[in-house]
Computed example of a mutant assay.
Amino acid sequence: MMFARFAEGARAAVVAGGIHALDAGLPALDTGPLLLGLAEVRPFRLEHFTAAPADVRRHAALPDPRALLATLGIDLDEVHRRTRAGAADPRRWSLRRSRLRPLRVTLYGPLGELPLTMHARKVVEVAASRPGPVTGERLLWGLLADAANGAERMLRASGVNVSAVVREAAIPTRHAA
């Protein structure tokens, strides 16, 4: 079980990202929903991580059906409270690597299963690459370690001083020789 080393907040952030991906109808968990989960849960105390979830959602191009459903008189948050009791509890979710396909990592939970994209898998692998618990700071490190995944662009577009966050979170900026 890959979640065994995850701190409670980091696990909650990954689960929140998975729920956002499922709600958006995405076929896999990618870095946008993962970053949104991190912005919502905030499993760290980083003064310079100023990203508002609404900004991350917009820059990650994740739809929010709440406004549309509200025009029909439907409160999506109320629907979720009534139909998803306990579904967001991180203890009910697991993150597993396939034994037959080791590059396939899947998030399993009461709302469904969701494979991680290559970029999201790399986030988890970077975060878990050092001994000790996987924290929110380590997930952030994983998001920022891969310049191709768009996380840095989304954070900058959300008004975050990424350099200040990297310093504050003590994220390594180069490999040791």
Results as ranks from 00 to 15, higher is better:
residue 67 A to V: 12
residue 64 D to I: 09
residue 44 F to G: 03
residue 67 A to C: 08
residue 99 R to N: 15
residue 12 A to T: 12
residue 46 L to Q: 02
residue 82 R to S: 12
residue 148 A to Y: 08
residue 13 A to D: 02
residue 42 R to M: 07
residue 96 R to K: 08
residue 150 G to M: 01
residue 124 V to A: 04
residue 17 G to I: 05
residue 97 R to N: 09
residue 23 D to I: 08
residue 37 G to F: 02
residue 148 A to V: 10
residue 92 R to T: 11
residue 43 P to S: 04
residue 53 P to A: 13
residue 126 V to P: 00
residue 37 G to N: 05
residue 76 L to F: 13
residue 101 R to P: 00
residue 86 G to I: 02
residue 13 A to P: 07
residue 88 A to T: 06
residue 124 V to K: 03
residue 74 I to F: 11
residue 93 W to L: 08
residue 141 W to D: 07
residue 113 E to I: 08
residue 45 R to Q: 14
residue 140 L to P: 12
residue 43 P to G: 08
residue 101 R to Q: 04
residue 122 K to C: 06
residue 54 A to Q: 15
residue 60 A to E: 11
residue 12 A to P: 08
residue 116 L to R: 00
residue 67 A to K: 11
residue 98 S to C: 13
residue 81 R to S: 13
residue 33 P to L: 07
residue 24 A to C: 10
residue 78 E to W: 13
residue 17 G to W: 06
residue 72 L to G: 15
residue 54 A to L: 10
residue 36 L to I: 00
residue 122 K to S: 15
residue 89 D to H: 11
residue 93 W to K: 02
residue 23 D to C: 06
residue 79 V to L: 05
residue 69 L to E: 08
residue 132 G to Y: 01
residue 85 A to K: 14
residue 48 H to L: 08
residue 134 V to A: 03
residue 45 R to G: 14
residue 90 P to N: 15
residue 75 D to V: 05
residue 112 G to Y: 05
residue 15 V to W: 02
residue 98 S to N: 12
residue 20 H to E: 14
residue 36 L to T: 08
residue 136 G to C: 11
residue 150 G to N: 04
residue 107 L to R: 11
residue 12 A to M: 12
residue 61 A to Y: 04
residue 19 I to S: 04
residue 140 L to A: 14
residue 65 P to E: 07
residue 130 R to H: 08
residue 42 R to Y: 07
residue 36 L to M: 01
residue 28 A to I: 15
residue 146 D to Y: 03
residue 88 A to M: 12
residue 92 R to V: 13
residue 121 R to T: 00
residue 136 G to K: 03
residue 55 D to W: 05
residue 136 G to Y: 09
residue 74 I to L: 14
residue 87 A to H: 09
residue 61 A to D: 07
residue 37 G to D: 00
